[in-house]
């Protein structure tokens, strides 16, 4: 039983990081119908911004994180939206999908060429210890990852539901034309969605890199899991992406521990196919809103 609890807890912790990537993914999808195939690389890159600041510029840890956050907002938010997505709107379609794939190659190869191909240790301000919860051993870092991700997604939900800007962002995503008529600055709201995505990706990067090390190829599996989490939970619901991420994380861990190690990667895919065929709007999504 304590092993079960432990497997679930560490699954939740990994899942919460998937959830951050999935929420950003869903936001960008809603705001600009952009299926971002570079989402995994968006989570991989910010850790390297921090490493550049810390190791190349010799900055302290907190300044490195701040620099990475700003660089992510500028490059993954502003530049990605302005240089790649914006010129291809309103009807990006397949060329936009291809462009984001090329962005993913670009980011991966740039990191490999300019920083290095080896996995890099990544600093964490948190202590290394573990905690006992009901017989299960969980590292402080895992627990912090889970709580911090939940807090961020919770805060984001509050922002989207309770503030004027948040509601304008939702309106702009659901029905740009009507929102425009009602006086919402749709272009600005779309930009906000890209900025929030960049911030979430940077945050996920800071959380995931101390445990899994920073490596140029980290995004490959993460991106796919983020899609799956977003679809399983429901593309048009932020909470859906959160639940999807946690679910995928926990199920992945359970399958690896109790069923099969070789086919652990197959489980999210089977889940994905089942959800798409039987409940295409996702577990928490509703059929209204944007049809896909």
């Amino acid at each position: 039983m304590s092993q079960f609890l432990q497997v679930v807890l560490s699954g939740l912790s990994t899942g919460s990081i998937y959830a951050l990537a999935a929420v950003g993914f869903a936001l960008v999808w809603q705001a600009a119908q952009t299926v971002n195939f570079a989402q995994g690389e968006f989570v991989m890159l910010p850790a390297f911004f921090a490493l550049v600041a810390i190791h190349w510029f010799g900055w302290p840890l907190w300044a490195g994180f701040a620099f990475a956050m700003l660089a992510s907002l500028a490059i993954l938010g502003l530049a990605f939206k302005g240089l790649v997505v914006q010129p291809m709107m309103p009807d990006g379609g397949l060329p936009l999908v291809i462009a984001t794939m090329a962005v993913s190659i670009l980011l991966k190869e740039s990191v490999k060429t300019f920083y290095g191909a080896e996995a890099q240790p990544f600093p964490s301000p948190l202590p290394d210890g573990t905690l006992q919860i009901g017989g299960a051993v969980i590292s402080i870092r895992d627990l912090f990852d889970l709580l911090a991700s939940l807090a961020v997604v919770g805060g984001l939900t509050l922002f989207l539901d309770r503030t004027r800007t948040g509601r304008q962002m939702q309106a702009a995503a659901q029905s740009p034309a009507v929102a425009e008529i009602l006086g919402v600055d749709v272009a600005r709201m779309t930009l906000y969605a890209f900025l929030v995505n960049a911030a979430l990706a940077a945050f996920a990067s800071f959380l995931v890199s101390p445990t899994y090390l920073a490596k140029f190829s980290n995004g490959e599996s993460l991106g796919l899991v983020a899609f799956i989490a977003a679809i399983v939970g429901g593309f048009n619901r932020i909470r859906g992406a959160l639940v999807g991420g946690l679910l995928v994380g926990v199920l992945d861990n359970l399958v690896a521990t109790y069923v099969t190690q070789e086919y652990r990667a197959a489980l999210p895919l089977v889940l994905l196919i089942a959800v798409i065929l039987w409940r295409p709007q996702g577990l928490l999504g509703d059929a209204e809103g944007r049809t896909v």
Partner: peptide, 10 residues
């Protein structure tokens, strides 16, 4: 190569 593809698509 990646830059070329992005530019072509945009």
């Amino acid at each position: 190569y990646a830059l070329f593809v992005i530019a072509l698509m945009v």
